[in-house]
Each structure stands twice: as C-alpha cells, then as structure tokens.
Computed example of a mutant assay.
Amino acid sequence: MQKTVNLSPCRWQLSIMLMIAVFLLGMAGTMLMSMQHGAGVTDAKYYENGLNYDRTKSGARNPGLRWSMSASLAGRDLQVRVHDEKGAPITGGALQFRSEAAGNPAVLSLTEAAPGVFVSPWPATGKAELRGLLVFTKGEASASRKVVFFN
C-alpha cells in the first residue's frame, strides 16, 4: 500500500488568508479615499447650511420659504391666510390642499376671497379628521405646510 504525502498547505487556508488580505486592503483604500475627498455630509458647517438655506444662492431663488400660512375652519368653509415675513398678505397665486387620505387622495383648490385669504367649502369626506398638505404657489415661489383638521 502506498502512502500519499501532501507537501503543499491546505487550499482552504490559503483562500481564507487571501480573502482577509483583500478585505484589509479594500478597507485601507476606502479610508484613504474618504480622508482625501470629503463629502458634503461631513462638511463642518453642514447643520449651519441647513439652518440658513434661505440665505444661500439656491435658497434665495424661492422667497416662499419665508412665507407663513394659517389655516382654520370658518363654519363649513376651509379658510387659509397667506402672509410674507413682515405679516403682509400675499395676493394672487394659487393655493391647493392635497389630502393624504389613504383610500381617496384628493386635491382641493381654494379661491382668493380677500387679499391673502383663500376659501373653499369643507370637503365632505365623512371623517372627523382630515390630513394633508397646503401648497401655495405664486410665480416661481412656493410655500407648503402640513396640516390636520378636525371637524
């Protein structure tokens, strides 16, 4: 009977060592690249940029970022007032209420009844609560606000 002698190391040990080496080289390469080429998320002024977005070049294009909307139910009517940052009513433009109802999403257009005051009849949904998004647009500017109404 002949005895077989295996002089080379086991192949599975070499493949495991090779995978570990490739992993370590890949991690080292990734770390070097991230240290040399940072991203906007790792910017030291990341949060400050978000807080002052309306003062940046891209945020200054939309004056609607500083507008405010106040919504209320006046009898059977939905009434929304739109004001600029100084409290003056914003005339013109279009205001929509976009319902977030799961089974029946709807868009309700409000008409301007007075300067900066938009009115529409309360939508008959049969629910006591109505959630949605108010979207006001005037030219290139837009403002939005999430609202919840209880009837």
Score class of each variant (00 low, 15 high):
residue 6 N to W: 11
residue 6 N to R: 12
residue 6 N to D: 05
residue 7 L to Q: 11
residue 8 S to T: 14
residue 9 P to E: 05
residue 10 C to Y: 04
residue 11 R to N: 10
residue 15 S to W: 12
residue 17 M to A: 15
residue 19 M to S: 12
residue 20 I to T: 08
residue 22 V to T: 12
residue 22 V to Q: 10
residue 22 V to Y: 08
residue 22 V to M: 11
residue 27 M to Q: 09
residue 28 A to Y: 14
residue 28 A to C: 09
residue 30 T to H: 09
residue 35 M to Q: 14
residue 36 Q to T: 13
residue 37 H to K: 06
residue 37 H to I: 10
residue 37 H to Q: 13
residue 41 V to D: 05
residue 46 Y to V: 10
residue 47 Y to K: 06
residue 49 N to V: 07
residue 53 Y to P: 06
residue 55 R to I: 03
residue 56 T to A: 04
residue 61 R to D: 00
residue 63 P to M: 08
residue 63 P to N: 08
residue 65 L to G: 08
residue 66 R to S: 10
residue 68 S to G: 14
residue 69 M to E: 08
residue 71 A to T: 14
residue 75 G to H: 02
residue 76 R to V: 08
residue 77 D to E: 13
residue 78 L to Y: 06
residue 84 D to P: 03
residue 86 K to Q: 15
residue 89 P to V: 15
residue 91 T to V: 08
residue 94 A to M: 07
residue 94 A to E: 11
residue 95 L to T: 12
residue 96 Q to M: 04
residue 97 F to H: 08
residue 99 S to M: 07
residue 101 A to M: 10
residue 104 N to F: 13
residue 110 L to N: 03
residue 112 E to T: 04
residue 119 V to D: 09
residue 121 P to Y: 07
residue 122 W to M: 15
residue 123 P to K: 09
residue 124 A to S: 11
residue 128 A to I: 07
residue 128 A to Q: 06
residue 129 E to K: 12
residue 131 R to H: 06
residue 134 L to G: 00
residue 136 F to E: 00
residue 136 F to T: 00
residue 146 K to Q: 03
residue 147 V to L: 04
residue 148 V to T: 14
residue 151 N to G: 10
